[in-house]
Design a protein around this nucleic acid. Structure first.
Lengths: 209, 209
DNA sequence: TAATTTAAACGACATTATGTTGATTTAGCA
DNA sequence: TGCTAAATCAACATAATGTCGTTTAAATTA
């Protein structure tokens, strides 16, 4: 046995209960009107127990967000698989497919956090994660900065915000399409542009690779 | 003189002070940790006066947002000017230019509300306004629903989120470009798609109109 | 299995923000 | 100038916060 097995199961249990209580209560009444008493009632714990684990409700929120974003970053990291980099009108970027799969796996959390009663802090931090992923990928494909018609910074801002918009739409409507379908739409929009993302535009398609 | 001049100047003054106090305090400490006492101190009013005008701080926020979004909707409404509908790589949509001008005019408000310490409610309501504007415009240009490679709903979600992303970027960086420049970038991204928004892609440009 | 450790429960406390009320002062209006 | 209503002021009950000391219960270790 390696090192840190020293985590009291009672601690893990209490923390998990509180994190679950947080998500369900945000969904019900929004983060602002949640009290510590609400959380501990829902988690079936004493109010004092809360303060053994978290400084206040903001601390609980922070830690919950951090844990999920950690996973998100891991999901977006390059696989090192070379054939995963090819794509086309019907073959989406594999990392985008993985992204939608990750969201689906934690749909409850993301739907609440990105929804109407959700949290702007989470939204903007997630946006930053997506932006940096696009920025890195962009740097690999397009190294000649001077050749750009639109600045790199603006392109990546545009892409990451659009992606988050699609994710929100997908969650709001309870994921009516598969991750692969969503990633395909995104790839088409990226290659053709929203203005020509119709059948008509296929008369003069840009080279997919 | 027509009808409603019946607004006590003291009322207008108090409400304005409180709205200004709200924006500056959100910028400083975030909405959550603002108290009614904070607001009235900043506005140089008695705490009881606050309750003469607003139910609580959420009510104050609501009303401030509503007033600004009202103006935004008005800005986006079609002008009826026929020559304003033409556009190209260097000729942006005129309504988008007007949109950026409106944001610039109220930059303090938008920067705070859409920023890190801002408000998700405002963000999602603004997104909805933009989305509906895109949706309407889309319906005029593209009536044949079946011809679409990507569903209309998805295209408009994509566009509106991307636009809001660019607005946020622009505000965060204290508006380094002109409204016309920003609208031009957006138009290029819309016509070419983010993936080909580089000089290279001009070898096979899609027809701008 | 018994002993030890530590998390969780419980009751209590001072502090702070909330929303409301009644009485008084002050500013706008006719 | 006198009337009306807004703004001020002091006070109140209520509710949430964060902290403490003590007791109970669960997990780990000898």
């Amino acid at each position: 046995m390696p090192k840190d097995k020293a985590v009291d199961p009672r601690v893990k249990r209490s923390r998990r209960y509180l994190q679950e209580a947080l998500v369900s209560l945000i969904e019900e009444k929004g983060f602002d009107s949640i009290t510590v008493l609400d959380l501990t009632k829902r988690a079936d714990l004493n109010r004092a127990t809360f303060y053994l684990h978290f400084r206040d409700k903001y601390d609980l929120l922070e830690q919950s967000m951090d844990e999920m974003l950690e996973q998100l970053i891991h999901t977006l990291a390059p696989t090192g698989n070379p054939e995963a980099t090819s794509f086309g009108y019907n073959k989406p970027f594999s990392s985008i497919v993985r992204l939608f799969e990750h969201i689906a796996e934690h749909a409850t959390f993301y739907k609440v956090m990105l929804g109407q009663k959700g949290n702007l802090g989470f939204t903007s931090r997630m946006l930053k994660v997506l932006r940096e992923a696009f920025y890195q990928r962009f740097s690999l494909i397009q190294s000649d900065e001077e050749q750009l018609l639109v600045p790199k910074e603006i392109v990546t801002r545009y892409q990451s915000a659009a992606l988050l918009g699609l994710i929100m739409y997908w969650l709001e409507n309870n994921m009516p399409y598969s991750p692969h379908y969503m990633a395909t739409q995104l790839t088409r929009l990226s290659l053709l542009g929203p203005h020509h993302a119709s059948g008509l535009s296929l008369l003069y398609p840009p080279d997919p690779e």
